[in-house]
Amino acid sequence: MNSKHEEHALAISIWESEGGAPNRSGRLYQYGRRFEGNGTYTIHHVFTGQAAKIGSWKMEGLSRKNAARALCILNNPQEASD
């Protein structure tokens, strides 16, 4: 059985292979990483504070490594597709 962190890494990989961030208009949204009290991270939109989503998956409960990877992709979608 895969751990939750392994499932998150797989979901990020699938998302990247399907094109990454859905908004390719050139307008970059700014996301941040928030450390939660349970030892995990949440990626959130810095202006609204709401958790980012990849499809229906809310980006909550992430390991530090997966949060850093997702944060990089969300803040630099053009670089992620190169």
Score class of each variant (00 low, 15 high):
A67W: 05
A9M: 06
L62I: 08
S3E: 04
Y41W: 15
L62A: 08
F35V: 03
A52K: 00
I14Q: 06
H5W: 09
K65E: 14
I14R: 05
E79I: 15
N76V: 00
Y29N: 10
I43E: 05
D82Y: 10
Q78A: 13
G20Y: 03
K65H: 10
M59E: 04
I54R: 14
T48F: 07
Y31T: 04
N75S: 08
Q78Y: 07
E36W: 03
I43V: 15
Q50E: 15
S56T: 14
N2S: 14
L28I: 14
N23H: 06
H5R: 01
E16Y: 03
E60C: 13
L28M: 07
N2F: 09
A80E: 11
L10R: 10
R34W: 09
Q50H: 14
K58E: 15
L28Q: 07
Q78T: 07
S17L: 06
W15L: 02
M59R: 02
P77M: 03
T40Q: 15
V46F: 06
N76H: 15
Y29L: 12
R34Q: 14
S13Y: 01
E18H: 08
G55S: 05
Q30T: 15
G20Q: 05
F47M: 07
M59G: 02
A9H: 08
L10W: 01
L74V: 04
I43Y: 07
E16M: 10
H8R: 09
G55E: 09
S13R: 05
Y29I: 04
A68P: 02
K53Q: 14
Y31V: 02
G20P: 06
P22W: 00
R69Q: 08
S3Q: 04
Y31P: 07
T42F: 03
L74S: 04
V46E: 09
A80W: 02
S3P: 04
M1V: 12
S13N: 07
E36G: 01
T42Q: 13
P77G: 06
E6A: 12
G20I: 01
R34C: 07
G20S: 05
I54A: 11
F47C: 00
R64I: 03
F47S: 12
W57D: 04
S81D: 11
E16V: 07
G39C: 10
Q50S: 13
L74H: 04
W15K: 01
R69W: 09
T48M: 02
R33W: 00
K58T: 11
Q50W: 08
I43P: 11
Y29F: 11
L28V: 13
W15I: 02
A11W: 01
Q30A: 12
H45K: 01
I12G: 03
G37Q: 10
G20C: 05
N76Y: 13
H45A: 10
G26C: 07
G39E: 03
R24A: 08
I14V: 12
I12S: 03
